[in-house]
């Protein structure tokens, strides 16, 4: 059975179903219960945006509110994972990774390799990414490239409720550390999601719109901007854009992306991260290296500017890659596109 639920509810459901299925799944994070030890409701918040609301009532002490010590509790989640648990740690904003990065990139990411394959670290670190929340420079970043740079980490960023549920369940069952990026501006977005548990394998991109003229690759919120752009291109310019949602950034589905580029001959990569050393660069470079002969035009990148995220709504709105910018980028690959 399927029904329409939000991205937020889908994440909550994935956690609930995995906790019910597997007693080794525990949740740790700041305010994930919300109100622990306070005089009011025991689970007042259920996460700062209510993503884990209701789970405490069902699973009790398997949800742990933590002190505001990201190094300690993210490290503890990693340590518990190395000792047979399947912890899901929530790090409220990806911007906070700086305070606990050592535990992620020097510990979790390296255990399996560094210990000669004799360690598993099945930890998931859920974190909110992305701008558009009027949250300014330290609560709005799309720092995904920092994590895709690190061998040993898996990096996931779903763009819709269906993917969020299936990918989170897969993340919890995966034996490697996973950075699970949730776009905060997608929490309210709804789509049809099965009630039962299911997984989506890592490394399988999703072609969300088929087309023959240009390949637009993206992930997270900007998948929707890419779809808007494709719609506009089809309507105004009779251009059939193929839109690919990467879904998983590490591992990445090179085959699907490259096959599409070989078919369309044109590539536009849309990434909410900063341009330097980003997923956008990575994919453009990979295409240049592997399918150069098929390219009819230079690959284009649409990214946030190389600046911190601004606060003022008027600035933030132009900071995030827009459908218009994507259309313009497609225009650089196909002469007949009219300026938006």
């Amino acid at each position: 059975m399927t029904r329409k639920i939000s991205y937020k509810t889908a994440i909550n459901e994935a956690l609930d179903q995995e906790m019910t299925r597997d007693p080794s799944v525990i949740l740790l994070g700041e305010d994930i219960v919300g109100g622990a030890g306070a005089p009011g409701e025991a689970d007042a918040w259920g996460g700062v945006l209510g993503v884990t609301k209701g789970l405490y009532a069902k699973h009790g002490d398997r949800l742990l509110d933590t002190p505001l010590s990201e190094s300690a509790y993210v490290g503890a989640a990693i340590g518990a994972a190395a000792c047979g648990m399947r912890p899901v740690a929530e790090l409220m904003f990806i911007d906070f990774m700086g305070v606990c990065f050592d535990q992620i990139f020097n510990q979790a990411a390296k255990f399996r390799y560094m210990f000669g394959g004799k360690a598993k670290t099945p930890v998931v670190i859920r974190t909110m990414v992305g701008a558009g929340f009027r949250a300014a420079a330290q609560h709005s970043q799309m720092l995904t490239p920092i994590f895709t740079h690190i061998p040993g980490l898996k990096v996931i960023c779903p763009s819709n409720a269906y993917d969020a549920k299936g990918l989170l369940i897969q993340s919890i069952r995966d034996d490697d550390p996973v950075i699970f990026c949730e776009h905060k501006n997608l929490y309210g977005s709804e789509c049809a999601v099965p009630t039962e548990s299911y997984t989506i394998p890592f490394g399988e991109a999703n072609i969300v719109r088929e087309g023959k003229d240009v390949t637009i690759v993206s992930y997270g919120l900007t998948v929707h901007r890419a779809l808007d752009a494709a719609e506009s291109l089809a309507r105004k310019d009779r251009i059939e854009a193929e839109v690919i949602d990467l879904r998983t950034l590490s591992p990445i589905d090179w085959d699907t992306v490259m096959e599409s580029v070989e078919k369309t001959g044109r590539l536009v990569v849309v990434d909410e991260a900063h341009p330097r050393c980003s997923l956008a660069c990575d994919i453009a470079a990979y295409a240049a290296q592997h399918v150069f002969e098929a390219l009819k035009a230079a690959p284009q990148m649409v990214t946030a500017p190389h600046t911190p995220t601004p606060f003022s709504p008027s600035l933030e709105d132009i900071y995030i890659p827009s459908a218009d910018a994507i259309v313009a980028a497609v225009g650089k690959t196909i002469a007949r596109v009219k300026a938006a």
């Binding site: 080794s24 525990i26 398997r62 190094s71 300690a72 509790y73 993210v74 490290g75 503890a76 989640a77 990693i78 340590g79 518990a80 994972a81 190395a82 000792c83 047979g84 648990m85 912890p87 050592d102 535990q103 020097n106 510990q107």
Partner: peptide, 19 residues
Amino acid sequence: GILGAGAPLICGAALASKF
């Protein structure tokens, strides 16, 4: 190789034992 990195990890190990 990272000084002080074992302390959070062992908290996790102890947490696993406690569970």
